[in-house]
Design a protein around this nucleic acid. Structure first.
Length: 816
DNA sequence: AGAGCCCTCTCGACAT
């Protein structure tokens, strides 16, 4: 490291009264040597400056060698546009001091077209951008020339990207940039993960020139997790998810602190909490706010600004404030309901005490009694830093197909060369020549079944074997569809007078009639009419309204949290109830123990019960709701194979219930727990085709089969679903080997059913003892499932059989 | 061996 540069940086930090952390210097040294790597650091630890100064040092060094030419030197990738703005400001101020000649800019969707035109002529020295914008730049014919001077690339919040298709798209872009600049230095910034080593590998590619370095940002961050204990734990409900009983304690917490973030798990829950807070404290109008992903960007900007300026006392939010509040003064973080995972809890805790050396604190607010148990487990898992891994997707072909068209636009490609390049991306390291050929054929001819449609012949080789996009309309359509995020079709919500509020899903609006009231954006609105995918509303008074529901993913409880909860129950069986959470949940656990038993890491509890509804079987494997859906359907299927029967199924994160109207001979559990023919049984027990078809919608969009429509004139969900279903059917009939179909099925099994975890759970079930109990009434664990029941109704009985059974019952009722 | 649930399911980007 040049002594001069070193001194300047020391001075820069000293001026601000900031201490240079050893890990920062470690990154500078490594990057100067040309090493790439992963920096594992918490937010608010000075991680941004660690890598940014590395870039400035490298620039200084190469400048000294006289190699400086105009062009983009540093690329900074961030997963969120909102984050880009704050990062940009931090980078610009330091560059102004240290490298005044540098231009630092952002390129995101927010940039006005004037800026873009200027950037198109000449890129700045450093650019802050998103994976999608980067890919878009790669689709320009002169991409290579523009990136020729690049010598450092930083991916911020890599842990947010690595586990999804956005991360895969980033990997593909990186493979390309590395090929153009073999000396490219790449650094990822990641929060704590169960699989940090994998994070580094995925970022640096399948065949790195040099092994990557991992730097630990060892700034000790104390994390405090505690719980708001209900005033009367013995009268706290056994089920439910809203947690409004905790309103008063939450108000008291908000009262006591300057700024509080109140995290909820769903958007509708956020709406309800906000409304309840305002009803209880009308004096807080204007001092508390609501923030979630369906609110209009302008509304959210206003809220974020209010937080920054300290005007807001509390914000009720969803994960929309998980990221991007790095520069906000938040004193207190509350989490209503289960945090579902340790990583998520840490992330949220990190929103408070956001400065080097200050402790972060999150307070759990249970919404039912068993969440007290979960809270005790969460505390332990956080203390042990037992954090979830994020699996990296394995060669998703929809993303590859999109990439092929992007590269055909960005200068064209030769098949063999691009194949090698793509295999340099970690996710595609095992891509076979056959798979490659399939993907190429798919974009060149439309595969087996679409050959007659010219719009699916998207790339063509020229006389020299270079694949390009021959058609301007196809090119434009492709650029408009770049990216891997597929959202539900939604309807804009606007006041009659014109103000934009946000969006709700089509299905919700279609159930409303003119004059109906609903709660959205913290206001009671009267629905007027729908016109061109916009719902017009006016302010309503008095009466409460329906709360919109959104269709989101259903996040299961993580294994880490589930195991911690089981462990706490094992201690409880030994009479150990330590901590306020365990003491509060003690009466409930004792009832469970008296009526039945407590599930522990070594014991599976199974309960049988008869009621007017029929014959119930409850089981509590603690494997998360996705696995319980799989297990319940699998068991129902296996039971019904022995003797046809209909089962109603209910699941939650702790267990599941099977209910049969008629007597069922429950067989030996070990037969149920077998993983023989597991895949076949799982596929048969669930409607696998329907699940794949739903999944295929996303794949068809990413692969460029379905066009979302031009901005502002979005197609309706029905239209989009119809066209993706059409492709699904055509492929199934005429192109059964279509690899996108295979991918849809694989994604269902891996992501929606968590097949690996299901298999692991079956293994655990076989190893554990079964504690079987005949119960007269639902136990505390069973009660929650009974409440849950009619949401998830599944049947293994064919319709005709069901009709036959109903007829039999009718006959019985009618008598002889 | 008391009754207990108001309704559930995040986020993120790009393009004319």
């Amino acid at each position: 490291m040049s002594a001069g540069a070193d001194r300047r940086f020391d001075h820069w930090f000293a001026q601000r009264g900031w201490k240079i952390f050893p890990f920062q210097r470690e990154v500078w040294r490594a990057a100067l040597k040309g090493d790439s790597g992963l920096l594992h650091a918490t937010t608010g630890s000075g991680k941004t400056y660690a890598v940014w100064f590395a870039a400035l040092l490298r620039a200084a060094a190469t400048k000294e060698k006289g190699r400086r030419k105009a062009g983009l030197r540093v690329l900074w990738i961030t997963p969120m546009r909102a984050l880009a703005a704050d990062t940009l400001r931090a980078l610009q101020t330091s560059a102004a001091d240290l490298a005044p000649a540098w231009t630092v800019d952002a390129r995101t969707g927010d940039t006005s077209s004037g800026d873009r035109a200027r950037q198109a002529r000449r890129l700045p020295d450093a650019l802050v951008t998103t994976p999608e914008s980067l890919t878009l730049m790669l689709s320009n014919a002169d991409a290579r020339e523009r990136f020729a001077q690049l010598d450092m690339l930083v991916v911020d919040e890599w842990h947010e990207l690595m586990g999804n298709k956005r991360g895969v798209q980033t990997q593909l872009a990186l493979a390309r940039l590395r090929l153009w600049n073999p000396g490219l230095v790449v650094w990822g910034l990641s929060a704590t993960l169960g699989n940090l080593a994998r994070a580094g590998e995925a970022l640096l590619g399948a065949a790195p020139v040099k092994p990557g370095v991992t730097v630990e940002g060892r700034v000790r961050k104390d994390i405090v997790v505690d719980t708001l204990i209900p005033d009367h734990p013995s009268r706290f409900p056994w089920a439910g998810h809203l947690g409004i009983q905790m309103l008063q304690p939450v108000i008291a917490e908000i009262e006591r602190h300057a700024t509080t973030l109140v995290f909820t798990n769903t958007r509708s829950q956020a709406e309800l909490w906000y409304q309840n807070l305002l009803d209880a404290r009308p004096d807080w109008a204007g001092r508390i706010a609501l923030h979630h992903g369906s609110l209009d960007r302008e509304v959210r900007d206003w809220v974020e600004l209010g937080l920054k300026s300290g005007q807001l006392k509390a914000v009720v939010c969803t994960s929309s404030l998980d990221l991007g509040v790095d520069f906000l003064p938040v004193e207190r973080v509350l989490q209503i309901g289960s945090a579902k995972g340790v990583a998520r809890l840490l992330q949220r805790a990190g929103r408070s005490g956001h400065a080097p050396g200050r402790a972060s604190r999150v307070t759990l607010v249970p919404t039912h009694s068993l969440e007290l148990l979960e809270a005790a487990g969460a505390k332990q898992a956080v203390a042990e830093r037992d954090i979830e891994s994020r699996p990296v997707p394995d060669k998703p072909l929809d993303v590859l197909v999109q990439h092929l068209v992007t590269i055909a636009l960005g200068g064209g490609f030769r098949s063999g060369e691009l194949y090698e390049e793509v295999r340099g991306a970690w996710s595609y390291r095992d891509l076979t020549p056959e798979e490659w050929q399939w993907a190429l054929d798919f974009v060149a001819r439309g595969g087996q079944s679409l050959t007659v449609y010219p719009e699916y012949r998207r790339v063509l080789p020229d006389g020299e074997g270079v694949y390009r996009v021959p058609d301007a309309a196809i090119a434009r359509r492709h650029r408009m569809g770049i990216g891997t995020i597929v959202s539900e079709a939604s309807i804009q919500v606007k006041f009659m007078s014109g103000g934009r509020l946000g969006s709700v899903e089509e299905g919700f609006i279609s159930r409303l009639r003119a004059g109906d009231h609903f709660l959205f954006g913290g206001r009671i609105l009267e629905f007027v009419r729908v016109h061109e995918m916009t719902a017009y509303v006016r302010r309503a008074t008095g009466a409460k309204g329906a709360v919109p529901r959104w269709q989101g993913g259903k996040m299961p409880l993580s294994s880490e949290l589930a195991h911690a909860a089981l462990e706490r129950m094992r201690l409880a069986t030994e009479g150990v109830y330590d901590g306020p959470e365990m003491r509060a949940v003690r009466p409930l656990l004792e009832v469970q123990q008296r009526w039945s038993a407590l599930p522990t890491p070594g014991v599976t509890v199974v309960e049988r019960m008869r009621s007017r509804e029929g014959h119930h079987l409850f089981m509590y494997p603690f494997a998360g709701r996705a696995v319980h859906v799989g297990l319940a359907s699998l068991f129902a299927w296996r039971l019904a194979r022995a003797r046809p029967a209909t089962f109603s199924i209910a699941v939650n994160d702790y267990g599941f219930e099977l209910l049969a109207p008629e007597e069922v001979a429950w067989p030996d559990t070990m037969d149920l727990f077998s993983d023989e023919r597991l895949l076949e049984d799982v596929l048969a027990s669930l409607n696998a085709t329907e699940l794949s078809q739903r999944r295929f919608r996303e794949i068809a969009r990413i692969a460029g089969l379905v066009f979302q429509g031009y901005p502002g004139q979005h197609k309706s969900a029905r239209q989009l679903q119809a066209s993706s279903s059409l492709f699904f059917e055509v492929f199934r009939k005429h192109d059964a080997d279509n690899l996108l179909l295979t991918q849809a099925q694989r994604e269902v099994l891996e992501q929606e059913l968590e097949l690996r975890r299901l298999r692991a759970t079956l293994r655990e079930l076989r190893a554990r003892a079964v504690s079987l109990h005949e119960v007269k009434r639902a136990t505390p664990f069973g009660f929650a499932l009974m409440v849950e029941r009619f949401r998830e109704k599944l049947s293994t009985e064919k319709l005709s059989d069901r009709v036959a059974r109903m007829l039999r019952e009718l006959e019985k009722a009618a008598g002889p």
